[in-house]
Design a binder for these strands. Structure first.
Length: 478
RNA sequence: CGAGGUGUAGCGCAGCUGGUAGCGCGCUUGGUUUGGGACCAAGAUGCCGGGGGUUCAAGUCCUCUCACCUCGACCA
């Protein structure tokens, strides 16, 4: 089992301690450094490069679906935050307040935005008058602050980077269409770019966003069997519009409330990339999101001609992929491990022997498989291998999820599965919140979503055994 | 906010019944090396988390405090 051999002792093994494994990777792969403020992280160049690629891919998809980027203030006056009742109640426990400007106490406290619904609403109220002003399709890239007590890099930090889309529509139908459209954007982004398979579905009443009529979600499953909400899309109906009096004059000369949506994806998704694809040697990045897709490691670089050839290859290959060269004076083995830890999908080794044979060695991060490739065929071979790796990662993640997805018809069965083989549990639900609470209290699992793709596991609710309304994915979650 | 744990060099740690600071890795310089974490030599690096006490003497004992980590309750 040479493939499973561990070359680096620095990373705690996944099976030994998953939480430690995660923090080890985050630090050893140079994604994050802890900062002086509890719960706030320094995102280092490699981690930020990941985020930039995520931004680039998502932003392109937002633009393609007609959205425009804006920037809202970071501060929200207390009175503004108060306007929508459910919304404030949802966020009140975790907002940070600014009370002073310099040495002077403010007449009204300012909240550091935990999310920007109220700001967008306040703005929409001013700029929307006519049906001709609709729809408004805005998005904002920013950071938000939520005063969390238990924090972990990417998964839950006090300040995090995200994107929040906020749209206003003339009709309820349009708003619903937008909500689903953006959920699909997230889902295809996750599956196509991040190679993370997701379950699309709707949140239960209990789990939905504060102030939303409906919340839709994509849920993914981590290696330890815990679920991660990877993106959400909300239909607000006209609830916020009524609270903020966002009205427009329709064609029929009637004043009507707009219908709104919001949707977000955050740096948390980086946690998902780590926990879905990573292994005991470190990060594993899908090629489409890898800041460096190919690293060139010269071997015996002191031998005349080796470094020159390596630089020449870098120059050539930079036209077809994101490539870096490691010409430091570390040992080759050290470099191999280092770049594996950072999850670079493909390594190219070139040494005197290769140059003689006019070939290079390509090594896949995923399984350390070696390919000997002629120097003349790199331009066709490398994109092919990267594409294969992208697909292989998706399939592997899908297999992993399948192997951790179970069905249960009663509480004992559900609890046994959760304890013995953590993962998603498909089980029927009556729709009564009491049952959700019972399940949460008894086994710490929550309703992840009511999937669009329904299955009939049984007729009865897994908890109360009364008539079931729908099938729900349950699980312990991050 | 409850329960537990850890703070000593950049990182990981040792430092006993108190006696004035050590190991490994990393770092710097020079040399030999290079196909899975090389070797030799010479270096540099400390408010022992912070305050207060006990003592002739405190990483070490007492006390308060702060920070961080892990696990639970609440959340993207």
């Amino acid at each position: 089992m040479a493939q499973d051999k561990k070359f680096v002792e620095a990373i705690t093994s996944m099976n030994e301690d998953f939480a430690r494994w995660y923090t080890d990777i985050v630090k050893k792969a140079d994604l994050v450094e802890y900062s002086g403020v509890k719960g706030c992280m320094i995102i280092r160049p490699y981690g930020y490069a990941l985020w930039e690629l995520i931004q680039k891919e998502l932003d392109r998809r937002f633009k393609e679906t007609g959205h425009e980027n804006v920037y809202m203030p970071m501060f929200i006056p207390e009175s503004l935050l108060q306007k929508e009742k459910d919304h404030v109640e949802g966020f009140a426990p975790e907002v940070a307040w600014v009370t002073h400007g310099g040495s002077e106490e403010l007449t009204e406290r300012l909240c550091v935005r935990p999310t920007s619904e109220t700001l967008f609403c306040d703005h929409y109220k001013d700029i929307i008058q006519s049906y001709r002003d609709l729809p408004k399709l805005y998005n904002q890239w920013c950071s938000v602050v939520r005063w969390e007590k238990t924090t972990r890099p990417f998964l839950r930090s006090v300040e995090f980077l995200w994107q929040e889309g906020h749209t206003a529509h003339a009709t309820a139908e349009e708003a619903q269409e937008e909500t689903i459209k953006m959920l699909n954007v997230y889902a295809s982004f996750c599956e196509e770019v991040l190679a993370i398979p997701v379950i699309k579905g709707q949140k239960t009443e209990r789990e939905k966003f504060a102030g939303a009529n409906e919340t839709y979600t994509i849920e993914s499953l981590m290696h330890d069997g815990k679920a991660l909400q990877s993106g959400t899309s909300h239909n607000f109906g006209d609830g916020f519009a009524r609270a903020f009096e966002i009205q427009y004059l329709d064609k029929d000369n009637q004043l009507k409330y707009v219908h709104q949506t919001s949707w977000g994806m955050s740096t948390r998704i980086i946690g998902a990339i780590i926990m879905v694809h990573g292994d005991d040697s470190g990060l594993v990045l899908p090629p489409r999101i890898a800041p460096t897709q190919l690293v060139i490691v010269p071997v015996q670089q002191q031998v005349e001609g080796v470094l020159e050839k390596a630089y020449e290859l870098k120059e050539r290959l930079s036209k077809i992929c994101r490539v870096k060269i490691d010409d430091s004076d570390k040992m080759p083995g050290w470099k191999f491990s280092e770049h594996e830890m950072r999850g670079i999908p493909l390594r190219l080794e070139v040494g005197p022997k290769d140059i003689q044979k006019n070939q290079v060695v390509l090594v896949k991060r995923l399984n350390r498989e070696k390919l000997f490739v002629s120097m003349d065929e790199l331009e066709t071979k490398i994109p092919e291998v990267l594409e294969d790796l992208q697909n292989a990662l998706y399939n592997k993640a899908l297999e992993m999820r399948k192997s951790k997805t179970f069905t249960a018809v009663n509480m004992d069965e559900m609890e046994r599965i959760l304890n013995e083989t953590p993962g998603f549990i498909k089980a029927m639900y009556c729709g009564n919140e009491e049952c959700e609470i019972t399940i949460k209290d008894r086994m710490g699992a929550t309703a992840r979503c009511i999937p669009f793709e329904q299955e009939q596991i049984s007729d009865k609710c897994v908890c109360c055994q009364k008539e079931a309304k729908h099938m729900v994915y349950w699980g312990r979650a991050y």
